[in-house]
Write a protein that binds this DNA or RNA. Sequence first.
DNA 1: TATTATTGTGACCATACAGTCACAAATGTA
DNA 2: TACATTTGTGACTGTATGGTCACAATAATA
Lengths: 221, 221
Amino acid sequence: MPKETFLKLNEAKRKQITDAFLKECAVKTYDEASVSVVVKKLGIAKGSIYQYFDNKLDLFLYLIGECSAVKMPYVESIKREDYSDFWSYFRDLFLCGYRFDKENPLQSHFLHSLLENLNSPSIKHLFKDMMKQTVSAFEGIVENEIELGLFKNNMPIKTMGFLLYKVGVSIQEELLFEGAINPLKSIESNSPIYEGKKELLMQKVDDYIALVKPSFNKKQL
Amino acid sequence: MPKETFLKLNEAKRKQITDAFLKECAVKTYDEASVSVVVKKLGIAKGSIYQYFDNKLDLFLYLIGECSAVKMPYVESIKREDYSDFWSYFRDLFLCGYRFDKENPLQSHFLHSLLENLNSPSIKHLFKDMMKQTVSAFEGIVENEIELGLFKNNMPIKTMGFLLYKVGVSIQEELLFEGAINPLKSIESNSPIYEGKKELLMQKVDDYIALVKPSFNKKQL
DNA sequence: TATTATTGTGACCATACAGTCACAAATGTA
DNA sequence: TACATTTGTGACTGTATGGTCACAATAATA
């Protein structure tokens, strides 16, 4: 948690600092990201940062919290109950993500970059915990779909949850892998990751859904 | 490539050095792994290492090469042609991996640990290339299965290849995630990753195959 | 044995970083 | 204006690393 010194700062300066670190961390790993470098760019003293935050990790956690808070409303703007089919809900989640990305490029870039931090020496423990939560959320989703009679009930839930999680991640990863999106380039121009690539993204989502649906859905009799 | 000074070493010493670095790198990331530390453990001078290898990366690449060479025969001991069904071949590949692990624990540990290096700052470029090769190999597999009329031909091959690759990786990752295997512990006792866990591994493989098969296989008419 | 070639050594260099702290500047208060 | 409190500063510390190099020890050759 930031110290109150940081919270008492005027909004402009707070945003300036936050944004600078978001940008640094969106482009580099936690361990690569350098407080010294950002501070130089900002034109403020290094000591100041340590009057705002306990340490580098504290700062990083603050960034995660902020960006998550910004994204949350987008994700929560849709509810599973309003869909008869899981996959159309799943699909719309990506539309929400697209809107979030479009309206908050910097935060989107940062959250995307978190995936690259899974094995960062200094914070891998932390990320293991986060992943544990995410995966168990996916397990919950699977359980729910099974109760609804939509997903298969003859497969280990853990495996289904894990795979569903991996599918979600793979969509992003494959786009990256193919070079269809290029965060390092788009962040330079402060543009969203998926700028002008809505169709591309949703096509990939549809591909994955079509491919993966038969694995999860109960067979129709 | 190691310098010839290294190759001229007697086998015992060469193995001693290789093994020490394998162990270090199996437990830590490339960037975390420390030449200084290993050298201390070995009781030799740091300068010696730099008479054997150009630099740390050269050494690391040597380790990859050696371990791959050891694993290769295991993987190549079975051929797709000898199976009527892709998934039984896929399954047997894991049996081969199990044997390799059992007979070469250290090398197995090292190769497993490579997955944690995907985003290591100093070598991520290198790993992107390796992944590119792997994924395109999986695309080749998919293409072949399509030609055989076994896999669906109405899905993008790239996506199918990428997903198949992810499935393979996920098996290992989920076992790790669940704590079913514990490399950091088993390497301490020089025991294989899957010691006494053959059933566990193959059960997971079977689960994944059962789950994922409907996504890839052409529907029977 | 004397000379040369090869291998081994470890103090040392350059580098980079997170985090500190004595001090300075600015702001608030009376 | 005089004092107190909060905020800002940047040189400095401690720490760790990969890599070097002048030199020492050993092995090979004659």
